[in-house]
Design a protein around this nucleic acid. Sequence first.
DNA 1: TTAAAAAATTAAGTATGCTTAAATTTAAAA
DNA 2: TTTTAAATTTAAGCATACTTAATTTTTTAA
Lengths: 220, 220
Amino acid sequence: MPTVSKEDYLKTIYQRIEEGEQASTSSIARTLKVSNAAATDMLKKLSLQGFVNYKKYKGVSLTAKGRKEALSLLRRHRLWELFLMKVLKLKWDEVHKEAELLEHKTSEKLIDKIDQYLNHPKFDPHGAPIPDKRGVLPKEKKFIRLDAAKENKIYTIVKVNDKDDELIRYFAEIGFKLNTKFEVKKIFNIDGTITVKNKKGQFNLSPVVAKNIFVREVRK
Amino acid sequence: MPTVSKEDYLKTIYQRIEEGEQASTSSIARTLKVSNAAATDMLKKLSLQGFVNYKKYKGVSLTAKGRKEALSLLRRHRLWELFLMKVLKLKWDEVHKEAELLEHKTSEKLIDKIDQYLNHPKFDPHGAPIPDKRGVLPKEKKFIRLDAAKENKIYTIVKVNDKDDELIRYFAEIGFKLNTKFEVKKIFNIDGTITVKNKKGQFNLSPVVAKNIFVREVRK
DNA sequence: TTAAAAAATTAAGTATGCTTAAATTTAAAA
DNA sequence: TTTTAAATTTAAGCATACTTAATTTTTTAA
Ligand SMILES: [Mn+2]
Ligand SMILES: [Mn+2]
Ligand SMILES: [Mn+2]
Ligand SMILES: [Mn+2]
C-alpha cells in the first residue's frame, strides 16, 4: 500500500500522461505544490518500490502496479465527489477539495458501498470517468478542448477540469454545466478569446479558461 | 489545527478522563499503540501548544482549547459512524474503524451536512453521545457498568464500548444491541462471571466483557 | 524506611516527506 | 558549434512522529 503522498504522486503522473503530456518532474512538482527536489526524491522511491519506471533526466511512466494504484485512487476520488454532491448536497465547486482528502482514507469495503449506493455510476460531477472495481474505465464519447472549437458551431459540455474551484464557480455562474449546449460565436485571432452564447447570455472566455472545458459538437 | 496524531491523543485523553480514570502516559500509549516514550514526547508538544496541562510525572489534563478539539473529533467520529450504518449499511462492528480514519479528514462544512442529513442525532450506533456544533453534549440517561449490576434485575443496554470489533461482533451474535432488554440471572463471586438471559437465550459473560456494556435498570 | 518494582522521562536514532542551495545534465539560442 | 538557459538532480538539513535503551522519579511492599 502506498502512502498518502505516494498515492497523490501516482494519480498526478497518471493524469499528466492521460492528458497526452510528459510527466516531467517539474509538472508533477507544480501540481502537488512541492519543490522539484521533493518530486525527484519521491520518483526515486516510487521507482524502487516498482510503481514507476524512472531514469534520471528521462522522465517517468507508470508500471502496471502504479497504474492500478492510480486508478484505484481516481475511483475513490470520483465516487466521493458524486456521492457528496448527490447525497449530501455539497456544491459543484466544493466536492473536489473534500474528495482530495477522503480518497486516501476510504477502505475498499466503503467505496464499494458508495459505488453500490450510487448504482455504479460511470462519470463524476465534472464528467470524468469512474474506474470500476477492477480498474476498467467506461468508454468516453469523443470530445475536444474548447480552445480547438470552430466558429458558428453548437457544442455540448462533456467534461470540465475540476482542479480549480474558482474556475468551477465561474462555470456555474455563466450557466456552464455538464450537458449545457452553447454556440461558439467568434474566436479572436489576436489572443484566442472565444465568444460563446448559451441560454444565460453571451460570454467571452479566455483561452486559459477554454482549455479547461471539453466539448462535443452537436447538430443544431 | 492539530495534526492527525495530536487529534487522536486529545481524544484519548478526553475519553480516559470521561471514564473517570487518570490520563496516565502509559494508558494513552497503550490505547494509541505507541511507546511510552512517544506519548511523553507528544504530551510535551501538546502542552507547549496549549492543548493540555502537563507536569512531568504528574499526569495530564485538557485545557479548554484541548477539550474543544477532542469534542470536535468525537463529533466527527460519531456522526460518521451513524451515517455509515444508516445510509451506507455498514455493519455495527465495521463503522468504528472506518470512522477512525475519516474523522480526521472531514471539514466542518461536510460534517454539518452529515449532521443535517441525519437530522441532528444525539447518539451514535454504540450509544455514545454526539456533541453538537458548539461542543455541547446531549444529556445521557443514568447508566451503570454491567459488572456492577445485581442479580434478578432487568436491564436495558444503553451503550457499548466500540473500540474492539471482535467484542462488538460477539455482542451482535448474542443479541445484545442497543435497547436490548435482558435479565441478570446470576453473578459468580469466584470470578465475577455474569449469567444473563435475553430473547436469544442464556449467556455467561466474563467480567472483562461486562465492563464494556453499560446498562440501565428497567422495571419488569 | 528502605529496597525493589513500576511508571515516566530522557537520550539517541530512524523513516517519511518536505525545504533551499549547489551541481549537473539537457535543451535552446546565438 | 559553442554559449546560455532551463530542467533536473544531489547535498545538506528540518519537522513530525515514531523506535529502543538508559536514566530518573514515584509507588509499592518488604
Ligand atoms: Mn489526495
Ligand atoms: Mn471531478
Ligand atoms: Mn482517529
Ligand atoms: Mn461509536
